[in-house]
Amino acid sequence: MNEKYFVLGLPRTGTTSLCVASLDIGLKTAHTAYTQNTIKNAQLIADTPVFNDYEKLYQLFPNAQFIYLEREMSLWLPSIRRLLTRMLPNLIERGGGFNETLKRCFFSTFPELNADKIEDDDYLITCYYSHKVKVTEFLNKTGANNLFVNLANPESNKLLAEFMNVPQINIPHLNKKGKVTAWNEIRHPLKVESTRIGKVDKDALLYNFNK
């Protein structure tokens, strides 16, 4: 398989579940990508930096296909609130905490993020739909092959199988009840690590992947 898929859904829309299913259909898969090697070699990549840097990734991989994951707002809001609350100390820590690519992506998608904004439904809803509008405009402009799908839809397995041209795909329900570590626990020969033994490339997306 030579396909390249980028998953555009925001965190807490089922990205981990789709990544695990991707492994099961034979794709080298990364949930987050912070090195040139990961971006080059993984056939399906989700989360950071994809949900923010999709335009640059499209320039690097113009034949790539895009999967936008949707989720009901009543389910996404409490889930993203728990995640952002947990992440905030490491996001705002200067010179430490999370790597700079992750910080840049989150603060671009969730501008001026702070504890008060995390508790503001209107702020989070605006972030969700602003991201969706930008993604939709990008896909319409480029004509890139894409699928919008909600994994809670009973037809989602069928829609994804058709889009990815495989006989079947089964999406597990992972990271339930606020859990966010399911991907770390996965052991699979096709799993592509996001970092190089914990180290990241400062400008991974500036690499010429076609040389």
Results as ranks from 00 to 15, higher is better:
residue 107 F to Y: 02
residue 41 N to F: 12
residue 124 L to Y: 08
residue 127 C to G: 04
residue 119 E to M: 06
residue 98 F to E: 02
residue 39 I to L: 13
residue 102 L to E: 00
residue 53 D to H: 11
residue 118 I to P: 03
residue 64 A to Q: 08
residue 108 S to A: 06
residue 52 N to D: 07
residue 80 I to N: 00
residue 56 K to D: 08
residue 47 D to Q: 12
residue 133 V to N: 09
residue 120 D to E: 05
residue 65 Q to T: 13
residue 86 R to P: 04
residue 113 L to N: 04
residue 41 N to L: 10
residue 61 F to P: 02
residue 55 E to R: 15
residue 98 F to V: 01
residue 89 P to R: 01
residue 56 K to N: 01
residue 102 L to Q: 07
residue 72 E to D: 14
residue 137 E to W: 09
residue 69 L to S: 13
residue 54 Y to C: 04
residue 38 T to A: 15
residue 66 F to L: 05
residue 73 M to R: 06
residue 81 R to Y: 01
residue 79 S to N: 05
residue 88 L to P: 06
residue 70 E to H: 10
residue 98 F to D: 05
residue 131 H to M: 06
residue 109 T to G: 10
residue 46 A to D: 06
residue 69 L to H: 11
residue 103 K to G: 00
residue 115 A to D: 13
residue 127 C to K: 06
residue 132 K to W: 02
residue 68 Y to T: 14
residue 40 K to Y: 08
residue 39 I to T: 11
residue 35 T to D: 08
residue 65 Q to P: 13
residue 49 P to F: 00
residue 108 S to D: 04
residue 142 T to E: 04
residue 133 V to S: 08
residue 50 V to E: 08
residue 60 L to P: 03
residue 100 E to S: 07
residue 82 R to Y: 14
residue 111 P to Q: 05
residue 84 L to D: 09
residue 105 C to T: 10
residue 104 R to I: 01
residue 72 E to I: 12
residue 128 Y to S: 00
residue 142 T to S: 04
residue 37 N to S: 15
residue 51 F to R: 10
residue 103 K to Y: 09
residue 80 I to P: 02
residue 114 N to T: 11
residue 72 E to A: 15
residue 109 T to C: 08
residue 128 Y to T: 00
residue 82 R to V: 13
residue 113 L to S: 08
residue 100 E to Q: 06
residue 134 K to R: 15
residue 72 E to H: 14
residue 101 T to E: 05
residue 38 T to Q: 10
residue 94 R to M: 10
residue 89 P to Q: 01
residue 56 K to C: 01
residue 73 M to C: 07
residue 136 T to R: 15
residue 51 F to D: 02
residue 89 P to D: 09
residue 48 T to V: 14
residue 45 I to D: 07
residue 140 N to Y: 13
residue 49 P to L: 05
residue 66 F to A: 05
residue 108 S to K: 04
residue 42 A to F: 04
residue 65 Q to N: 15
